[in-house]
């Protein structure tokens, strides 16, 4: 057993530093989650509670497993043949790896925004209408029109694109594309929005707009954001989890994690000593 694995076993579950538990109802609960890519043990014995209607930030050095765990929550790892997940992840007390659960139904309730903006090569309108159409959320053209408008408004993009909804989504600027992807995700009225480094390809102004948007969205959605920017985690999140080498090292209220971390590794990371 390597040193890292030994450390992981020790800090797993209840062995890690205890911070105040989240307030309010728990939306997502993970218990003893392990993820393997072939022989690689990518996530080790992960336990976490994610409260409803708040922003949870996952931070940590590259390759620490934070994106991997994020992709477990909407089972996007299913598309990778060599990936294997054990343990239990519950959303609203329902096990999402239960074989009787339909993954399409699950994903319809969880929106996802990716690192690189990935609008479909379709019109702005069709990008947003994509989800409502495939899930049959609207029957008439006017209902879809209403969903498109309200989603674009929530994403703060409506004023910029309302006169060119028929133009291609790929013709927008990077920041606009990312907000279009957010509008696309919220068009199906999800409960949870997963964001995988949503601002890493954006300039500071576009980043500020997206962060502002995340802050507004948290009153209606449970948001989980993976980020490499500790300032961003501090700005947008209520709770923060620090990952290192596949282990969730420490989790607690964001201000506590950034001011008085209890684990040495967390302290080293947020003070810039490694990672």
């Amino acid at each position: 057993m390597t040193m890292e694995a030994a450390t992981a076993t020790l800090t797993a579950g209840n062995d890690r530093p205890v911070h105040s538990a989240p307030q309010g109802p728990i939306k997502i609960q993970a218990r003893d989650v392990n993820v393997y890519y072939g022989d690689k043990h990518a996530i080790k014995h992960l336990d976490v509670d994610i409260p409803q209607h708040s922003v949870m930030a996952f931070i940590g050095p590259s390759g620490c497993g934070k994106s991997t765990f994020l992709r477990c929550i909407n089972r996007m790892n299913d598309t990778i043949p060599i990936c294997r997940v054990t343990g239990k992840i519950e959303i609203d007390r329902r096990d999402i790896y239960d074989p009787s659960l339909d993954v399409v139904q699950l994903r319809a309730h969880i929106g996802m925004v990716f690192q690189k903006p990935n609008p479909f090569p379709k019109s702005i309108y069709d990008n947003v209408a994509y989800g409502p159409k495939i899930h049959g959320l609207a029957r008439t053209k006017s209902e879809i029109d209403a969903i498109v408008e309200s989603s674009l408004r929530k994403a703060g993009l409506w004023e910029e694109v309302k006169d060119r909804l028929a133009e291609s989504g790929t013709g927008l600027s990077g920041g606009q594309q990312q907000r279009l992807c957010i509008a696309r995700a919220i068009a199906v009225s999800p409960d949870v929005i997963l964001m995988d480094e949503p601002c890493s390809a954006l300039d500071p102004i576009a980043t500020a707009k997206v962060e502002e948007l995340i802050d507004e969205l948290k009153s209606n959605y449970t948001i989980i954001i993976v980020t490499h920017s500790m300032q961003q985690a501090a700005r947008v999140s209520q709770r923060t989890a620090f990952f290192h080498l596949g282990t969730l090292v420490e989790e607690g209220p964001t201000d506590v994690i950034f001011s008085t971390p209890k684990d040495k590794r967390t302290n080293d990371y947020i003070t810039g000593r490694f990672g």
């Binding site: 996007m76 598309t79 994903r107 309730h109 609008p119 989800g131």
Partner: peptide
Amino acid sequence: PQSLRDGSYAMGATKSETMKLV
């Protein structure tokens, strides 16, 4: 690009919907 497939699957689209629509 794989990112378009990911985007569609994450929306809850099935394989055939992703194929036909994206």
